[in-house]
Design a protein around this nucleic acid. Structure first.
Lengths: 179, 179
DNA sequence: CAACTCCGGTTCAGTGAGCGAACCAGCGGA
DNA sequence: TCCGCTGGTTCGCTCACTGAACCGGAGTTG
């Protein structure tokens, strides 16, 4: 959020957190990272974000240790660190609030415990086994409020609208097209 | 966040939520509302936000049903609605993340179950009784990471740095000064 | 009733961030 | 050698944020 560095209320961790993830687009980038997006171009097309802004946000997130920039595999990959994964409760509660108040037809994307397929409650617990479900054990899939746009021919969008586990890279969907 | 209204990814409740609470300053205003701030001038001085921006944010939050503007008591009061109180998990998880990664000396403000004085865990449960603590039953007080700035002579700041329950208005602290 | 104060705003010029579209460079194949 | 893919950078334009001054109604005081 780049509040003035002489920000008066240093004693609030909320302000500190917002300096990192409070800027425009940043949490949407993080969300896509949870969904498995890892490549610059995929973030750009999925979000429709200006590429210069995307560059700036990715740089900030890497500098702050939320993402790592992995260059070793020939293609650049941006992957969530543990610190980034720790943002999941924030992302989840924002999704829940949006679903509760702006999606009368039901949740747009349902979160399930991958092990037993049961839905998660608002605290992130499995409604069947009561377990606190880890991010990697969470499956996401279109819910009753989902509205297919019909124009998702690109493999990345198609992969994102298919039931899959969080953090699982979608790169596979690109290199091995569905057809 | 005022994403372009033709925002491509309508199927994400996160984007919808960020259109309301993702703009600069908005979540800080909501946080202060949880802390008991209700008056225009108090928001302005506590946050150091430009008054024109504060006007715009309050208007948006009232229009969206997060706050109500109560004019009946002679003075204008902005109070959280149920929809606004439902933002608490978002605010709490942001505070937790900020404390975890940017406050090595410990939490800046501790959240406790007012009934038994025990701390809350990251899910908002009382560590002693295990109960999911409602917002109004939460007490907030300076924690080990708190750094007194020493210059808080105004009664509002003083009240905010004193153990007190969430949502309890600080108006009392203004009309009945401590001395 | 006039002067003063408090308070919730509005106005306004200056600036910086976001925007979109074009451009650039390295690399791997054909 | 040419081509296309990919991860960026460059560059005007616009618009929201900034800070400081100003405004007007409601008490209140002499």
């Amino acid at each position: 959020m780049s509040l003035p560095s002489t920000y008066s209320e240093r004693n609030c961790s909320l302000a500190r957190a917002l300096e990192i993830v409070g800027e425009r687009w940043t949490l949407l980038i993080v969300r896509d990272a949870f969904y498995g997006v890892r490549r610059f171009g995929d973030f750009a097309t999925q979000l429709g974000i200006p590429r210069a802004v995307l560059t700036a946000r990715l740089k900030l997130l890497v500098r702050e240790g939320v993402l790592t920039r992995d260059d070793s595999a020939g293609t650049v990959e941006y992957v969530l660190t543990d610190k980034g994964v720790a943002l999941w409760p924030i992302v989840r509660s924002l999704i829940n609030w949006g679903d509760d108040f702006y999606s009368p037809a039901g949740v747009k994307r349902a979160l399930r415990h991958d092990a037993d397929g049961a839905l998660l409650d608002h605290e992130g617990r499995c409604e069947k086994c009561g377990e606190l479900v880890a991010v990697g054990d969470t499956r996401i899939e279109p819910g009753p409020g989902f509205r297919p746009t019909g124009a998702e021919v690109d493999p990345v969008s198609a992969a994102l609208n298919t039931p899959r586990r969080l953090l699982e890279p979608i790169s596979a969907a690109r290199t091995t097209p569905a057809g």
